[in-house]
Write a protein that binds this DNA or RNA. Structure first.
Lengths: 133, 133
DNA sequence: AAGACAAGCGGGCATATGCCCGCTTGTCTT
DNA sequence: AAGACAAGCGGGCATATGCCCGCTTGTCTT
């Protein structure tokens, strides 16, 4: 079997490509899809620790910690402490809420484009397959 | 719509997850799936320039250049010059052929596992969808 | 032939990702 | 209460990715 049909390589290519669609759409906000997604996840469960967030995002904790620092530097989130002094606790900052609001329609646009291009059936198929892997 | 159904985020998660399957299988060779895939692509078209390879891999040229350096440091490929003095030309080194041979069955194993888990139909569906994106 | 223009790279900058190690803080056992 | 053990992080190390800038080399126009 050739490399062209390797699930992994195809997945990685597709992920890069689709990410770039979202990145382009969000570019006016100076934020990429990874950051936007992380911001959304924080909002859903704030205040949230790095460890909890890393489980939700299925990323390594140290990765989440570093990515959080980038968001904090952009003043989109605040990194504080919980009752447990070990915990770093993330909350959305004012500017973060702003970005979330402005980003939503941009994000929707790309999502809708992809859905339209794939068609309803295939879009659902894709979701199913990806969550199965 | 919630983040859980974002094509992009799902794709990225799936790509990371599946990559880790391949990485684990290839770990005994001290190589990861990205490197292995690149090695295979080089073999198919060697001698190949960075620019050509970047088109094949759908990666930025500078990314390919840096990744090539890693493979060269591992002595899996050689980075030489073409007739065009501007071109950096990649060829598989002896050790690279060795890794390609040893890696093939490991790679097959993971691919077969995934195919078996998905079933023939869904595996084909996945390939189709990913190339459509 | 000389100058304009393009092709091919490398290096710098920024972010992303995972693993390991060691430190601090909290909990649990005896 | 003290010591063992675990949880939560940060920092270091390595690789991965894209973009931009500037340099070298090749090509093309006049």
């Amino acid at each position: 079997m050739s490399n062209d049909t390797c699930h992994c390589v195809l997945l990685r290519k597709a992920a890069r490509k689709v990410s770039s669609y979202y990145d382009e759409a969000l570019a006016p906000l100076g934020i990429n899809i990874g950051q936007f997604s992380m911001l959304r996840n924080i909002r859903r469960t704030e205040p949230v620790s790095l460890t909890d967030l890393s489980h939700r995002l299925e990323l390594d904790r140290s990765t989440v910690g570093r990515n959080a620092k980038v968001l904090a530097r952009m003043q989109l989130i605040k990194i504080g402490h919980g009752e447990d002094q070990r915990e770093a606790v993330l909350t959305i900052a004012t500017k973060g809420h702003d970005i979330l609001e402005k980003g939503a329609p941009l994000w929707d646009g790309v999502q809708d484009d992809i859905d339209a291009r794939l068609g309803e059936d295939k879009a659902r198929q894709l979701q199913e397959l990806l969550t199965t892997l």
